[in-house]
Nucleic acid binder design. Structure first.
Lengths: 210, 210
DNA sequence: AATCTATCTTGACAGCAGAAAGATCTCTCG
DNA sequence: CGAGAGATCTTTCTGCTGTCAAGATAGATT
């Protein structure tokens, strides 16, 4: 109970190392990017030896996979946050979720890349696959609300889904790589307006018009 | 002039190591992905010691940067190839270049990621910056041909450019990560038709309609 | 109290990038 | 012709990485 007399050594067992490692991994990812990510760096951040993570995550990619799974949850939260401030009609709601999509990407660039453009996250993992599917399902449901029927099964519906996802994702990804300078230079309100205008093109009133 | 009598040792000087390394790097990238890319692997492929590349490219990122610059040239070629087979009206031409965009991404996934989503390619390099700008300029010019005036300077024009680029890039990138299953499952002709329909939404007849 | 199991540390190894120094070839200029 | 000079390539070394194996420690169970 009392101290050892000299420096209080950290306890041998961390207590919640799993959480601590996920936090550390997120910071590591944010600061050094996915290509500079290091398992040893995460361990050091969490104040633990370099081999400790292996007990909670199989290997470096295992840690990244768990982090990506968490990412998809926050990804959905960002979309819902935008929707809460938007009008309730289906079109406004779908556009708002697109704005949330971009919000998340800009706020967590490396994590976004891990989730959408990396081979290191293992999508056969149940956790990750489940959360990623949930995000996709949310999009489909948003499109269904506009068109009034389930987009699955008929081509026009799938076109709407792919157009919406494609344009939102493309804008987000290009902004992350520093392209889309005009958008990046705009003040927030103007940027939101421009993004909304573009995203809205994905689901025109007359979907079959060319 | 005559042989040494035993095994003919490869010449000390390679002759065209720079080219050989670029070829090797492309194969290395295609086979092991950007995250498995190794400078030593490239050297071995080119039949040369691991330190030889340093004389032609500063370091591993230098080699990748040169490769990305080459990539942007072929990227443009893919777009022009599609346009050659398409009707000459501006809209068909712009859609065709989008199909070429996707062609390139699907044919060179890792290279595409290097060009658009990696921190390893150095875009301050003159070569790379020049070729990347050329690709972007080509897109802008394609949009200008539709709208009849230079998209720069006025907001509506920039919206057209960003919408076109965003939707094309988004579709390509998502297909690369194995999403967009419906599109990937289609036979080529159907896929082209679907992609064209979606890309066309980026520049509607009445650009201001919501 | 004794043992069992999960957790964490230490030490080792192979592969990697990059730097430094030396070897080999080609070329130019006297 | 031939002697530097400079470019090209190899060898060697250092420090970092991920992963594995073996040992130390703590908490839980019985």
């Amino acid at each position: 109970m009392e101290t050892k007399g000299k420096s209080e050594r950290p306890p041998y067992h961390h207590g919640d190392l799993r959480h601590a490692l996920l936090d550390a991994a997120e910071k590591e990812l944010a600061e050094r990017g996915i290509e500079g990510f290091t398992l040893r760096g995460c361990a050091k951040r969490a104040g633990v030896s370099h081999a400790a993570p292996a007990h909670h995550f199989r290997d470096a990619n295992g840690l990244l996979t768990a982090l990506a799974a968490l990412g998809f949850e926050r990804f959905l939260s960002c979309q819902k946050a935008r929707q809460a401030d938007a009008p309730q009609d289906p079109r406004s709601q779908l556009v708002a979720s697109g704005l949330g999509y971009v919000d998340f990407a800009l706020a967590n660039p490396a994590l976004f890349r891990l989730m959408f453009a990396s081979e290191r996250a293992d999508f056969t993992s149940d956790d990750l696959a489940h959360n990623a599917d949930a995000a996709f399902g949310y999009l489909v449901q948003g499109v269904a609300a506009i068109r009034g029927r389930d987009p699955y099964g008929h081509t026009a519906g799938m076109l709407d889904v792919m157009a919406t996802w494609g344009i939102t994702h493309g804008l987000a990804d290009l902004m992350l790589s520093g392209r889309m300078k005009p958008l990046l230079a705009m003040p927030p309100a103007a940027r939101d307006a421009a993004l909304s205008q573009i995203i809205g093109r994905a689901f025109p009133e007359r979907p079959d018009d060319r």
